[in-house]
Design a protein around this nucleic acid. Structure first.
Lengths: 220, 220
DNA sequence: TAAAATTTTTAGATTTACCTAAAAAATTAA
DNA sequence: TTAATTTTTTAGGTAAATCTAAAAATTTTA
């Protein structure tokens, strides 16, 4: 069993490892909001417990054991986010901090019952996939909105940026999960995209388009 | 803002203070499962923070500030218990440990939304009253089953013993919250009580009868 | 490829919540 | 009302997770 703090390290390493194979001390420190020296200490501890592979000055990566523990925390976090949004009517940009606390509640039973209560959701309110109790992710086929061509359509099924500012912006534009969109035009000049959603013409910047994930249901 | 540990101390002191005006160091140590010396340390810290009144060798009591913090934790604990039983189908004897963790989640918003989601319940699954957001308890009129007389009837609305063994026993007897009961007979010999509930004759010991709380709806 | 810059680690402290052992105060019993 | 017992506190220490400052390794730049 891991401590609250150890769990946080595992989760952060897991997410950082999605970008780079081995994870750097400074990157972890930034995420955890702590100093690199503290990270080194904790990494040694996690290595002793067999949760990470660690070579001095070379960065860390999760072992199978560590990865499985991390996925378990991700599962809890995302299920709680679904609960907060679907049942308690939180906005999708408000749930992260509370889920950050709830993910550390220790009870095998609790999370399985919560999963059932929520109807075994496959994705959290941001479209991120929820692993099942064996740690398996459902395969999802995402395309970034920016990669669609004029005439394509699809459904918004996720975002790859979770900041409150970004989510509030999408909310204001009416671009929430499940919304149908159609690409009307792409501006050569700045790469901004003209889309049609709920009968409304919406112009979004290239930066925003990069972080909206679409599942194709039209002709692509 | 209090730490996880400080919150536990406040909660324990609050419950112990229901029996005796000032609370003893050893009593706290037993509840927290720690040593008296550790309790002394923590009490001093709580006193410095203005959460308890403390005189060496004389025991502690909560200040208004401490009491209000404690009631807040009790509120969270009981609301989570309702959630676990009503929504996640836990048994009433299974919820305590998980609620013990959930009660420390910090979010003003969360607990108000949970309260609303649950329909503003007035009591937890054991019949214990849930304070409102201002810390006010609804007045409830309880009578111990042992104090009823032959011919009286009422509704089971609470228990004053929360051990899993006791709750499982009641479950087996079919004596759960909301059940109507009628006193058929009281045995002089051992003080055991013969009651009628759901058309069944049930004999319960004096010890059990002491811990079942009844709200009177028949002639008493 | 040597110097500069960056990243990472070590060494030694600090804080929180514990602990044990022994001393002090309060309570109970003879 | 002393003596014995119990309760509580003090003193000094430990483990977890942090920190700062300085040293060591690695990477980048010139």
């Amino acid at each position: 069993m891991q401590s609250f703090t150890e769990e946080n390290y595992l989760k952060v390493i897991y997410h950082l490892a999605e970008k780079t194979e081995t994870v750097q001390t400074n990157a972890i420190a930034e995420q955890i909001q702590t100093k690199p020296a503290s990270v080194t200490d904790m990494i040694k501890k996690l290595a002793d417990k067999g949760l990470v592979d660690y070579v001095k000055y070379q960065g860390v990566s999760l072992t199978e054991k560590g990865k499985s523990a991390a996925i378990d925390i991700v599962r809890k976090h995302r299920l709680w986010e679904v609960f907060l949004v679907d049942k308690l009517n939180f906005k999708w940009d408000e749930v992260h901090d509370v889920a950050e606390e709830l993910e550390h509640i220790k009870s095998i039973d609790l999370i399985e019952r919560l999963d059932e209560f929520l109807g075994f959701p496959k994705a959290d309110p941001h479209g991120d996939p929820i692993p099942d109790k064996h740690g398996r992710f459902a395969k999802t086929q995402f395309i970034k909105l920016i990669d669609l061509k004029v005439g394509d359509s699809g459904t918004i099924t996720g975002v790859s940026q979770h900041s409150s500012a970004f989510l509030k912006h999408l909310e204001k534009l009416g671009l929430t999960l499940g919304k149908q969109i159609h690409i009307n035009d792409v501006t050569d000049f700045d790469g901004s995209v003209e889309i049609l959603s709920s009968e409304k013409q919406i112009n979004i910047s290239r930066e925003v388009a990069k972080h909206i994930l679409i599942s194709s249901n039209g002709k692509i």
